[in-house]
Each structure stands twice: as C-alpha cells, then as structure tokens.
Design a binder for these strands. Structure first.
Lengths: 191, 191, 191, 191
DNA sequence: AATGAATGAGCCTTCATTCAT
DNA sequence: GATGAATGAAGGCTCATTCAT
C-alpha cells in the first residue's frame, strides 16, 4: 500500500508525464504540473529537489515501469520465441501505457539526458535481459550475427511505431494485425 | 536600404536547428538564436513572423532537404533494389546531416506539429515517391503485403537508429557495416 | 504562506493612477508601477490578470470612489438645491481627489474604454441618482427641459474645469469663488 | 498649392491624429503611422526630428486649424451675439472635424504638453480673440463678471460635449437641437 | 507538510531610431 | 529624398524557486 505521500508523488509524476506528452516538453512548467496534480506549486519541492530532478525521476520511473513490464525473459526459452513474447508484452503494455514508451523514446534521443545528468548506464538499467537474450540468440546461431542495438532496433522500435500509427489513425489493427509486425521483425533477425 | 539577406535567413535556421539538437527544444530562445547567428534579436522578425513561424520553417526546410536528398526513386527500377538505393542515400546523407534526420523525427512525434499548425499532408509532402515505391513493391509481389508506414518503419527508421548509434559511440561501422542494416531491412520486407 | 494583501493592491492602484496623471497613459508600464509601489513586477499578477485588467480596475475603482462621494442625492429635496449640493460635494471631493475626477474624464473620452472592455453601463453605474435628479427637476418644471447629458454637462464639467484651472494656476479661489461657478451653472439649467 | 513634400507631411499628421483618436495615444507607433500614411518609417525623420516633435506638431497644427476656423471675432459686434456666432462656428467645424477638437482637448489636459515642451502661451496662441471677447463682454456689463477661463468653460466645452454625445449616439440633434445648447450657455454667461 | 504570495531573471515581441543602399 | 533592414532597449508576461504563514 502506498503512503499518502507516495500517492502525491505519483500524482506529480503522472501530471508531468501527461503535460510532456500532450503539450511537449517545452510547455512543462511547475505551475501547470501543480494545477494538474491539484497541489500547490511549492509542494513539489517537498518531493523533488528541483525541476530537473523531477524530470529525471519521471524518466527513470517510466523506464522502470517499462522494464518491469517487458524485460522478464525466460533464460532457457528459445530465443526466437522469447523475442516473440517480448514483442507481445510490449504490445500489451503499450495498449494502455503507450505514453510511457513514447516518453522514454523522447528522452533517450534528446540532449535532456545529458542535461539531467542521466548517464547511459542508468538508462540501460533494467534492460540487461534484452541484451542477454540477443547475445544468447546470436551465440546459438538463431539470430543473425549482429549486436544488441541493431537486433533490438528491429524488435523494439517497430512495436512502438506500430502502436503510435494506430493511435494516430494511420493504420488500424484490423488492416494490419500485430502478428504482421512480429513476423517482419522475426524475418529480419532470425536466420 | 539594406537588402533582405537569404544568407542571413539560412543562418537563423541553422542556429535554431543547432540549438534544438544540442540543447533540446525546451531550451530554444530567440536570444540564444540571435547570439548564435550573430545578429540582434529583433532582426529575426525581419525574416520570420514569430517564434512559431521560425520553428515551423526550420522543420519544413529540413524536411525538404531530406526529401530532396533521398526521395528520388527510379519508377522503373526493381523495388528491392530501389529500397537498397534509398537506404544508401539516407546513409550518405545522414553521415553529414544526421541532425536533419533527427530534427524531423523529433518534430514528427511531438505535439509541436499541432501547435505549429503543420498538418500531416504538409509533413508528408516530398515523400510521396516512398509510398509509391512501397505500393509498387507490394503489387509486384516483391514486398510482403503490408502498408507504407509498416514497410518504411523497417527501411527508414533502422538507418536513423544506426547512424545515431554510431554517433553516440554505441557501435562502429567497422563492427557493424551498413551493409548489415540493409540486409536485415530487406530480409524483413522482401519476400 | 503570505496572505494576499488588500493594502498592496491599493498601492498598485494608487501608483498606476499617479503615473497616468503625472506622465500620461502612454507612459504607464508595469515596471514603473512596480517600482513606485515598491514591489516586484511579477507581484502585480497576483492581484491583476494583466495590464488591461489593472487599468480597468483603476478606472472602476476611481469611478466608484467618485460616485460614492457625490451621488448621494436626497430624493425629496428641491432639485435646484440638490444640484447645488451636488456641486458642493464635487468641489469638496475634488480639492483632495482631483486626480480621480481627471482620470475618469481621461478614460471616458478615450478609445481605452472599448479596448478595456468597459461598456457604457458599467461606466454609468453609481451615477444613476444624477440622471434621476435631472429627470425629477425637468418633470417638476424646475430645470430647462433637456436631457441628462446636457444638463449635467453644465453642472458637472464646469466644476472639474474650475478645480483644474485652480491647480494649474490659471485662476485662484479668491479671484473666482466657487460660488460663482455654482451660480453660472444654475443660471444655465434652472428656469 | 502644396508641394509634394508638404502633402506628404500632411499625410503623416493626418495618420498620427487618426491613430491617436481611434486607438489612443498609447497605441501610437511610428511604424503604424508609416503604414497608414503609406510611406516607409524612416521617411518620417525627413519631416520630423523625432516622435515627440511629430506629436507636438500634430497638436500645434490641429490647434491652428481650430483657431482659424472659430476665432474670427467681430471686434465691434454685440458680445452675446458674437458668442452665439462663435458657438455656431464651433458646431459647424465640429461636424466635420470633431477629432481636431477632441485631440486638442486630450493634449490640453495631459502631461504630454509638458513632456513635448509645449508651453501654455503656445497653446493659447490664436485664441486671443476669445479672451478679448470675454473681456469686452464683461466690461460692457453684458456678461457676468467672470474671467476668461470661466466664461469659456460655459461656451466652448458644452459644444464639444454636445458634438461628442451625438457622435456616441447618446443624443440626437432632433432630440436636442443645437439651439438648446446655445441657449443654456448664453443663460449662464449673459446677464 | 502544505500553501501560494513574492521575487527577479528571462522569455517573446515591439519600438524608436539609424544608416546602407 | 526614400526605403526598410538592423539594432538593442524596454515592454508585458511567465517561470523556477523561496519562504512567511
């Protein structure tokens, strides 16, 4: 059970994420966050050292949620099957939490990471099982012989883009079932 | 009187893009732009109606540059070969202009597009040949039977992620030659 | 937390009025107001929505003060006598608060009223007793048969101009006692 | 005949007056004036030393026009009759040039006069015949024994307020003929 | 712990003025 | 003489942060 305080902290994180995703990171202000979280702006400083700390924690919090939701790999499973399951978990997670995936992506590819003092190892934390899966698949000769970032670029990114295209109305799941995406991704990386 | 100066306008666009890429869109301010472009802040208004107009033009300008650099498809060529050439052009372009590709991506997936009043058709303009290539490849039975956004998600995005990983030092071209990326992409989409 | 401060709001209104009267409305700036009121410029926004709101409230506040000071008419009194008393109250009020009368006049005859969204009924509020007095005097055959704006143009305006002429040194109360003004006004409108 | 240059100067004065009257003095800017006068903003400096000089000349120019239109008094005429004629000329002039009367009034009662370096004698220039008429009427025992500013406050101001009330739709000439105004004014000042 | 009033730096924008053309 | 691009100060307003309550 969350203490009342943790609940308030969560509300601040949620409001921040929501503003970032709906209005863009340039539109984020503590007063907006406070209003959306239904607290006084000064209260934010009880839970976060400053605005940068808040942004950093939003990122880390969302990244952890994603990692926990998708990165539970069966170390003994068939690598191709595990990638398929990974993509399934991403798809399931993304249907209710696409914003988390997009927020991570927005941070990952922006100078914000450096500005907020998040180093790559911190960003990577929680996703180690994916790298291990990659390595195992390559070593077993199941995957094409490429490195983690390349392999995952074909397994992870297409799911996000698929979910985003659906949200934007560019395509519908009826028109393009998620199975197609999985098939293409596996065609790319499985020998 | 002093004549309006296309070169100065370019400098403003360049400075703006540079600040976006190096400090993030939230850090863009007209005074920073003016300082980097070596002009007075008020001068920006000789060339742009306001900050939003400037941002919009940065986006459209960069998008046009990319479109011109990569979207020259040979209508009679073999679709698979044309995708290969397309990826080559992206790679060549991205080696000196990766920021353009990243800027477009940052804008595309952000609420900025709506805020700046850029509608999807405007963003799509110039890339029609890619959709046509997709359609031709699918119709000819060369590509897997999927729609444009899906196919291109496997041909376009991996190149950007590859270039970015190289820039970030995550991988090197020696370790993973670009040919590998092309191979994986083609494996995904060519029957 | 610090409590909103009615006294501080008054100080802002006073400073604004003072700058309008001493430097003209074109010279009014929030930083001047803040400096004169001895507060930070941002603090103004705790008490007013924006500059226009501040100007509007200055006007309405001064107008209310004037209305309360002069518009207490005895409904049963002789109309001519009531006009005389009205002018006395204006004169008394104007000796210490001429700026209020002048500020109202400056606003009334300027495009500001429309720009600030003050409609005529709002400007008129509080002065209804004067219109009623006019009507009563005309109906009773005591005043010449003219409408409110005309009658009051002879009772109200001359007092303001008299007070202003005294302030400017154009005339002195010894040279022209206020009684003369009252006499001329009453000669004009009383049959 | 005006030279082309004088014509351009006139256009600048007209534009300035028009903006003052329609948008308020706080909204006057050289670029607006230039646009309305259909010239480049820099050109204004060919005809005026700076913005203050322009405003000063607008005032003096309008004041001269009014003085020439109304201050032609017959030195031998009956004072009461001359006041009546004066009011007629004001009324006639004001029907097509009310803005001139209002602009003068706005300047006269504002700190602008001091800021622009217009001294009272300059403002008074051209209106000497009105003071003489006052004096002659008082000396002849035709007017009540009061000074120029007081007498004229009953002859000049009511005409402006009448014209303004008509423009604003507060009253109509059918409802209140101008003759009424003249009658009230003369009742006030003629013995 | 929570509030929100207060602060002043910094933002976008407009302005009067200058000056190359 | 006329133009309008260029300048940078100043304007209105928002913001992150502090702190009295």
């Amino acid at each position: 059970m969350r203490t009342p305080d943790q609940e308030k902290k969560s509300r601040i994180l949620d409001s921040t994420s929501s503003i970032i995703m709906n209005q863009g990171i340039a539109a984020v202000s503590l007063s907006k966050i406070a209003k959306e979280a239904n607290i006084a702006s000064g209260t934010i400083y009880t839970y976060f050292a400053n605005k940068d700390d808040l942004l950093k924690q939003v990122y880390l919090n969302r990244k952890d949620r994603v990692a926990q939701a998708i990165a539970q790999i069966d170390d003994a499973g068939d690598p191709a099957q595990e990638v398929s399951r990974l993509m399934d978990r991403m798809y399931a997670f993304g249907q209710t939490n696409l914003d988390d995936l997009l927020l991570i992506r927005e941070f990952n590819q922006s100078p914000l990471m450096a500005q907020l003092g998040i180093d790559p190892s911190e960003a990577y934390a929680g996703f180690e099982p994916l790298a291990e899966l990659t390595k195992r698949g390559v070593d077993a000769g199941v995957f094409v012989p490429d490195v983690y970032p390349v392999i995952m670029s074909y397994a992870y990114t297409p799911v996000v883009e698929y979910l985003l295209a659906i949200r934007n109305g560019g395509i519908t799941p009826e028109q393009v079932p998620f199975a197609n995406i999985k098939k293409l991704s596996l065609r790319a990386i499985v020998r």
